[in-house]
């Protein structure tokens, strides 16, 4: 089995090792964001796991991992990492109601990956592993890029847009 990063792999990583991020400083309705994102994953048939929840006030680190089996060979993995700094609980009025919100500096990044041969059928010995590598890199490379990786790329940007909308960012919106 193996994993291919949808966002380009090692050569596209920033110095901090994380790629494609959103940063926001202001008031955030974290509860509403959390619920909306979990609902989004559940609606699309993803298995959602909260891998890390490190609360060390005024900092908070969260890591989410969602996966979905596409078929008996491919699986989508979405890793979302949050780092929230300078958290201060505030009361704000949203939609005419008083609500507890979080005034903070918010950093989230997305790392989508596609796993092939998630059942490990081709990883039983070295010969079948090499055969699988050859198959993925040369035989079905185009099909993998067009039919498997590209749609997941745009699914990630849908999720990216949900974060921007929920945070109330001016640059929310997606033409696709």
């Amino acid at each position: 089995m193996g994993k291919a990063s949808v966002f380009g792999g090692e050569s596209q990583r920033t110095a901090k090792g994380r790629i494609d991020f959103i940063r926001y400083a202001g008031v955030v309705d974290f509860d509403a964001l959390y619920k909306r994102v979990v609902k989004w994953f559940n609606k699309r048939g993803y298995d959602f796991y909260e891998v890390l929840y490190k609360d060390k006030p005024p900092e908070l680190e969260i890591e989410w991992h969602a996966e979905r089996k596409l078929d008996d060979f491919y699986k989508y993995h979405m890793e979302i990492y949050f780092h929230i700094f300078d958290i201060e609980e505030v009361e704000a009025i949203k939609d005419g109601k008083k609500k507890k919100m979080m005034k903070c500096r918010f950093w989230v990044n997305f790392d989508p990956k596609v796993e092939y041969d998630w059942q490990g059928r081709w990883s039983k010995n070295e010969f079948t592993k090499k055969l699988l590598d050859f198959y993925i890199k040369f035989v079905i490379r185009r099909e993998f890029q067009l039919n498997i990786a590209d749609p997941f790329w745009y699914i990630t940007y849908d999720l990216h847009n949900i974060f921007k909308e929920q945070l109330g960012m001016e640059t929310a919106g997606n033409v696709r």
Partner: peptide, 21 residues
């Protein structure tokens, strides 16, 4: 800008989006 790239057949890639109030 998003529509311009969509119409020209570019793939979207948003590396960094930061907003401070």
């Amino acid at each position: 800008i998003d529509r311009f790239f969509w119409e020209k057949g570019f793939d979207k890639r948003e590396i960094n989006n930061m907003e401070k109030v």
